[in-house]
Structures are given as structure tokens and as C-alpha cells.
Design a binder for these strands. Structure first.
Lengths: 205, 205
DNA sequence: TCTAAAACGGAACGAGGCATTCCGTTCCGG
DNA sequence: CCGGAACGGAATGCCTCGTTCCGTTTTAGA
């Protein structure tokens, strides 16, 4: 297989990569920016996706699937704390969170995506729970805290993407030290966040 | 003083409050949204400000001044750690950071604002430094880490503003426990953030 | 009481951005 | 040599939003 067919196959991935980069930088970037970044024309996009929404959904769903896969892999790690922290580091490093959460809201989510999000949430819940049971996670931390932690890491951003990754890793390290259980300290304030509170982005209006 | 003059005077503050609320929710909200929230017509805005930019600058500068005032007040607190944490709690609670940082970039900053930002930065630097000298802040933390901390707290957000404040306070508590110095742990990863890296929003292009 | 002007409300205008479509072109496969 | 798949990118049309403009209300002062 070569020639036009091959180029088409390569464009499939080139376009997705470009879209990921562009929309990570600016969730409401114009579609033309994606085409330009990919080095293709606009019609190459519309041949594959019926419109902008479908492309965004695809990206977001891919992100969710990666998120799920990482959570699953983390559950395979025998040590709960290492599993959880490794998971967080990878999600933050790959910027998966921006792909899923920051894109949600810019399109109407499909029921399927809601289901995937729910399943992913359950996996992370188990990841958190066994760390709590293990005693290595401070006992007043809940699943929602971890969700917010991811959100907050995604917020540290500087113009250079590589530097951004470094700074996020640093910020995450700071947060992880706040999560550890090996010290006396005051309880966390306020009612702990619940899943329902944090799922608002997925609500279909 | 009453009648039209009084209403005008009240509108001054009503408009500023409305603008703050609206632009906190969405930094690129249309000006009409501000007028609607304030319960006034659009011309009431244009009578006071020459355009959208001037309004944004005003809001941002007000935020910076508040930021500076809080920092100054925090320096008056004798205990460095209490001064720093109290400062952070107040800034996060008042959402001052969104006002300054999230608005920067949506308008061209005046030199005066740059100067104010620099002065505010110095105050916080002293706040951080004396906490480091004091030994209550973990020694590998730098000023930039604190800046990023504020940024990350501003990222936790749910639809209800009151709940958002609670959750931010909780998240901040988590981070503060990561900042304390009373335990052995691995050094923070990566090159520490510098001021120059984090000031990019204020650069005039 | 009367009037000039300050304040205002909000419709109308115009520019710009952007998703989508359309058409002419290129290049393979048979 | 030909039909069509794949493509590039200009053209289209919609919609948002900043700004202006005009008619109306209110009041201070003569």
C-alpha cells in the first residue's frame, strides 16, 4: 500500500495529533488552525469528521480511554501508594486531563462518553480507596480531592510546553507531600467534594 | 445629594461589582453581559469607560492593589508562617488571582500596571523569604512555586461560587501541608520556576 | 414653572471570526 | 487513458460583540 492511500492513512493520525496539540493550547481554537498545524487542507478534515463537534468528541473520548487504561495499569501495581502516585504523574505528564475536562462543555457529550467517564471514575475510586485502606493516603482525603488535584495541575501553564510539564511535575510533588499520611496535622476544611459536584461538566443540558 | 447624582454614584460601584462577577466567571464575556448583570444600559458603561479595555484594566489594577495591600498586611504579622498562609488564604478566598492573572492578556497592560505587579511581587518575595529564613517553609520552595500555587487554586471551580470557595480552601490546605518543612522527604523535582518565566502574561507584545 | 444638560436605555450598525460548503486540481488504480 | 478518491483553499453565510447614536427621563438652577 502506497501513494494516495498511504498518505490518507498517515493523514488520519497527523490530523488527530495536530488537533490534540492545538486544542490543548486553546480549547476553542478554530478548525482552520488544526488544518494548518497538520499541514493539510480543510477538506481533509471534513472528509473524516462531519464537523467540529465530532472531532472534539473523538479527541475527548480518546483521552478518556487513555485515562481508563492508565488507571487500569495502576491497579496492577501491587503497592497502592506507588500505583496512585504513578498514575497521577502519568496523567499530569500526558496532559490527559485537559483533553477530557477542558474539552467537555465545548460540545454536547454522548451518552457513551458519560458511561466511559463513569467507568473511569470507578477505577480511580478503587485506586484511591485501596490507598486509603492501606493507610498511606491521609484519611480525610476523598476521591473528589484527587479529581480537583488533577484539575489544579492542569492549570499550571507557561508558554513553553516542555517547561510546563516540568513545572506540573513539581507542583504535583508538592501536592503529593500534602497527601501523605505520615504526620499529625489539622483535618482538611470544609465538606469533602462529592462525585456529583464534580461531574457537572458531563451533564447534558 | 440625591436623585440622578446619587444613582450615578451608586452605578459607579454597581457596574464595577457586576464587571468583577461577570469577568471572574468568563474573562471574555461580552460587555453587554456586564450591563445586564448591573441592571443598567450599555451607555451607562460607556459614559464611565472609553471602552472594554479600560474597564478591564481598571478591574485588573484594582485587583493588583488589593493583592498588594494584603501582602503588606501579611508582612505586619510577626509570625512568618502565619503571615504567609493567612495571605494565601485571603487571596484565594477573595479570588483576587483570577482578577489579575486571568484578565491579563485580554488587554494590553499599561506600564503602570507592570510596575504595580512588580512591586506586589517583591512584597510576596519578602513574605516568602522570611518564611524560608524562619525554617517553617520547606527549603526547596521558591517564590515561583507560590505563584503557581495561587494559579492552581484558582483552577478549582464548580458552578456554585460559594462552594467553589470552600473547595479552594480545602485544596489550599492540602497544598500548605505539602509546603511545611517538618519532615524528611525527597527534593522537589525540576529546575525551580523563576520570576521571568511566570511574568509572561505581562509582557507587552 | 421652564429649560438646558447630565444620565440613561437600548436599538442599530459594522467589523471580524469562524464553521461549513463548493469547486477546480491532482494523482492513483485498473 | 479514465473514473473517482482525496485534497487544497477560496467563497459563503451566519453570528457574536464592541461601539455609536438617538430619543427619553430627570433634575438643578433661573
Amino acid at each position: 500500500m502506497s501513494g494516495r492511500k498511504q498518505q490518507a492513512a498517515r493523514n488520519d493520525t497527523v490530523i488527530l495529533d495536530a488537533a490534540r496539540e492545538v486544542f490543548l493550547g486553546d480549547p476553542k481554537a478554530p478548525i482552520a488552525a488544526v488544518a494548518e498545524r497538520a499541514g493539510v487542507g480543510i477538506s481533509a478534515l471534513y472528509r473524516r469528521y462531519s464537523g467540529k463537534e465530532e472531532l472534539l468528541r473523538r479527541l475527548c473520548h480518546d483521552g478518556l480511554l487513555l485515562f481508563m487504561a492508565q488507571a487500569q495499569a495502576a491497579l496492577a501495581e501491587p503497592d497502592p501508594w506507588r500505583g496512585l502516585t504513578g498514575f497521577l504523574r502519568e496523567i499530569v505528564d500526558a496532559d490527559v486531563h485537559s483533553l477530557t475536562v477542558h474539552l467537555a462543555g465545548t460540545f454536547t457529550p454522548t451518552p457513551e462518553m458519560g458511561a466511559t467517564a463513569r467507568r473511569a471514575g470507578e477505577l480511580v475510586a478503587r485506586l484511591v480507596q485501596r490507598t486509603l485502606d492501606d493507610g498511606s493516603l491521609r484519611p480525610d482525603v476523598v476521591l473528589g480531592d484527587v479529581t480537583l488535584l488533577l484539575e489544579s495541575c492542569a492549570a499550571v501553564r507557561v508558554p513553553d510546553p516542555a517547561r510546563t510539564r516540568q513545572l506540573r511535575a513539581r507542583h504535583l510533588a508538592l501536592l503529593l507531600d500534602g497527601l501523605t499520611a505520615d504526620r499529625d496535622r489539622a483535618d482538611l476544611p470544609g465538606p469533602a467534594p462529592t462525585a456529583a459536584e464534580l461531574n457537572w461538566r458531563w451533564r447534558t443540558p
